[in-house]
Simulated assay, not measured.
Amino acid sequence: MRCKLVKGVLLTLLAAALLGCGAEKKMAAPHEKVPKAEAAAAAAAIVKVPAYELEYANIVDGVYDFLANGNSKRLPQQGTTGIYELRDHFNADEAVKHLGYTLLDINNDKVPELIFAFNNNEIRGKGYYGKELYAVYTFVDGQVKFVDEGWARSSLELQPDGTLLTRGNISNAEYVLAVHDLLKDGSTRCLRMYFTKAQEGAGGLEVYRSSDGRAFADGSERMQMTADEFFEMGNELSSYSTEVELLPLHEYKQSGSKFKGLAMPYLHIMGVHELQDPQADLSGYEQVSVPDPFKGADVLFRTNAELQDFQLLDLQGAANKNDGRVLYSKDRLQAGAKLYLHLSSFETIPKNGIAFKDDAGRLRKFAICVSGRDGSIYLHEID
């Protein structure tokens, strides 16, 4: 769906990637008198907004201004290749429909990253989701830092464990497949990297595994792997990439929080078997059990923000899975609340789910599912 930029620019950008894996204040007009109580409340609200949100909002402003109005002066210096492609391919109205953004903490440092991704405009429940990432930014030492970007010839996706998957090429012989993670200092670390080179005299492709995060045959390990196996490995990794929840840019707000309405960044759910520490203290978790759980499956649930009208649902007993019977409810779950859920065992069709209101006041419902790849637990939004 995406168009290509000038070929020379793309080749230069991807060649560089192959070499290393590596507040908005609403001010009153001068003549306008603002009651002291309102002014104090506004000031308090501004103080409570995290610094990263204010800085990220400036980037969202700039990207919106570019796609909607063609003004590139406020765009960030890095991370815009895919956004330029999007603007070249669509008119302004379509461009802002196909770009979404989100806040998601992918390196577990308690500060979310700002992510732009392709939005296919298909609503699931009340949320939008996308898999093709255009740009990732993080916030370190009071400043926004560019992390990575994706475009037509170098896709970028998020893996379930928070790592970033890159697949790209600069010619019919040079392809790269790399997985890297984001460190807490804002740098990236190459975890594994494979690449191809033309096979001399045979017309085929040789596959290498990099030892230092660079796509140089010298110093890299020649793999006993065919080109087809290389591409199959990339396709398999991509099949497990995570869809991120997005706020569509065409619903962009000129005032107020530009990140209101996101639900997924404020939850964390996992199976007990995923705990790294076998001596983990679960005494702080409230125990919640479904009636007569079949075989049983234990799940830990933790909130990163306050949730209103939280419910645990039985999806299997309802004629319509979206009208599940309420098994447990709480008017308010405080930020940092911990629940130890004893559920029915996981099968192809989810048996249990949760519901709550997001910060925009919309009721959101999610089925609790298990990955067929590694048994990890994830949430899938339902109507």
Rank of each mutant, 00 (worst) to 15 (best):
R189S: 14
L183M: 04
A227L: 04
E206L: 13
D218E: 14
M193L: 13
R209K: 09
L191G: 04
Y240L: 12
A227C: 03
M225W: 06
S220L: 03
G186A: 10
K184F: 06
T226E: 00
A198W: 02
D218S: 08
G204H: 01
T188G: 02
V176M: 11
G186S: 11
E200A: 04
D212K: 10
D228F: 10
E245D: 07
M193F: 11
F216T: 13
S220F: 09
L183E: 13
T242A: 10
A178L: 06
S211L: 15
Y175L: 14
G203C: 06
E232P: 00
T242F: 00
T242P: 01
E232F: 05
E236W: 09
R222N: 01
V244S: 01
S238K: 11
D185V: 05
L183A: 12
K184A: 13
Q224E: 08
L246H: 01
S220G: 08
R214Q: 13
L177E: 13
L182S: 04
D228G: 07
V176I: 14
G201T: 06
F216K: 06
F216R: 01
S211M: 12
E243I: 03
D228K: 08
G234H: 12
F231G: 07
E221L: 04
E221S: 03
A198I: 06
D228E: 13
G186E: 09
E229P: 03
S238C: 08
Q199P: 04
Y175I: 07
D218M: 07
D218W: 08
D228R: 05
L246R: 01
R192V: 15
G201H: 07
G186C: 12
G203D: 08
T226H: 00
Q224D: 12
A227M: 01
R209G: 15
L191E: 12
D212P: 09
T196S: 05
E236D: 15
V207D: 03
T242Y: 02
F195G: 08
V244F: 01
D181R: 04
L182W: 03
H180L: 01
T196D: 03
Q224I: 02
Y208S: 08
Q224M: 07
A215S: 15
G213Q: 11
G219R: 00
E221W: 00
F230S: 02
M233Q: 14
G213N: 12
E229S: 11
G219E: 06
T188W: 06
R192M: 09
S210D: 10
L205T: 05
M233D: 13
D228N: 10
L191S: 05
T196I: 01
E206W: 02
R214S: 15
F230Q: 05
A202T: 12
R192F: 15
M193K: 09
R214K: 13
E229Q: 11
M225S: 02
V244A: 06
M223A: 00
L205Q: 11
T188Y: 04
G234Q: 10
V244H: 03
C190G: 09
D181G: 10
R209I: 11
A173E: 11
A227G: 01
G219P: 04
V244C: 06
E243S: 07
G186N: 08
V207I: 12
V179D: 12
Y175C: 09
V207K: 00
E174S: 09
S210E: 10
Q224N: 03
K184D: 13
Y208N: 04
G213T: 11
Y208E: 02
Y194W: 14
E221I: 09
A178D: 15
L205D: 06
V176H: 06
